[in-house]
Amino acid sequence: MFESEFAKLDYIAKDNSVFHIWKKEAHFDDYKKTVSASLEMLRERKGSLFIVDARNGF
């Protein structure tokens, strides 16, 4: 789906969920690029849930 040094995004089909896992803190363009990828996944999968694991990110 999407992965960078800051985050990993997956789509969990059985739960119709976009799962965003922060790996480490991101700022400015690194944050924007990652969040934009999450938003795009949500737009592509109408009605999906958005789950965020921010334990390691902030």
Score class of each variant (00 low, 15 high):
residue 4 S to W: 01
residue 4 S to N: 02
residue 4 S to I: 02
residue 5 E to S: 01
residue 6 F to M: 00
residue 6 F to E: 06
residue 7 A to R: 01
residue 7 A to G: 09
residue 7 A to V: 05
residue 8 K to Q: 13
residue 9 L to S: 05
residue 9 L to K: 04
residue 9 L to N: 07
residue 9 L to G: 06
residue 11 Y to M: 12
residue 11 Y to A: 10
residue 12 I to A: 08
residue 13 A to I: 11
residue 13 A to Y: 10
residue 14 K to F: 02
residue 14 K to M: 00
residue 15 D to M: 04
residue 16 N to R: 12
residue 16 N to F: 00
residue 18 V to H: 04
residue 18 V to Q: 01
residue 18 V to Y: 00
residue 19 F to Y: 10
residue 19 F to A: 13
residue 19 F to Q: 08
residue 20 H to Q: 10
residue 21 I to P: 01
residue 22 W to S: 10
residue 22 W to C: 09
residue 23 K to A: 05
residue 23 K to G: 03
residue 24 K to W: 02
residue 25 E to D: 13
residue 25 E to A: 12
residue 25 E to V: 13
residue 26 A to T: 00
residue 26 A to R: 01
residue 26 A to M: 05
residue 27 H to K: 06
residue 28 F to S: 15
residue 28 F to K: 15
residue 28 F to L: 15
residue 28 F to E: 15
residue 29 D to C: 06
residue 29 D to Q: 10
residue 30 D to Q: 06
residue 30 D to N: 08
residue 31 Y to V: 06
residue 31 Y to A: 12
residue 32 K to N: 02
residue 32 K to Y: 11
residue 32 K to H: 07
residue 32 K to Q: 13
residue 32 K to D: 14
residue 32 K to F: 07
residue 33 K to S: 11
residue 33 K to H: 12
residue 33 K to R: 14
residue 33 K to E: 14
residue 33 K to G: 07
residue 34 T to S: 15
residue 34 T to N: 14
residue 35 V to I: 08
residue 36 S to Q: 13
residue 36 S to L: 07
residue 36 S to H: 07
residue 37 A to G: 13
residue 37 A to W: 13
residue 37 A to L: 02
residue 37 A to D: 11
residue 37 A to K: 15
residue 37 A to S: 15
residue 38 S to L: 11
residue 38 S to W: 03
residue 38 S to N: 12
residue 39 L to S: 10
residue 40 E to G: 14
residue 41 M to N: 11
residue 41 M to Y: 10
residue 41 M to A: 13
residue 42 L to K: 10
residue 42 L to V: 08
residue 43 R to K: 15
residue 43 R to G: 05
residue 44 E to L: 13
residue 44 E to W: 03
residue 44 E to S: 09
residue 46 K to F: 00
residue 46 K to C: 00
residue 47 G to P: 09
residue 47 G to A: 05
residue 47 G to S: 05
residue 48 S to V: 15
residue 48 S to W: 03
residue 48 S to H: 06
residue 48 S to A: 15
residue 49 L to C: 05
residue 49 L to E: 12
residue 50 F to S: 10
residue 50 F to D: 10
residue 50 F to H: 08
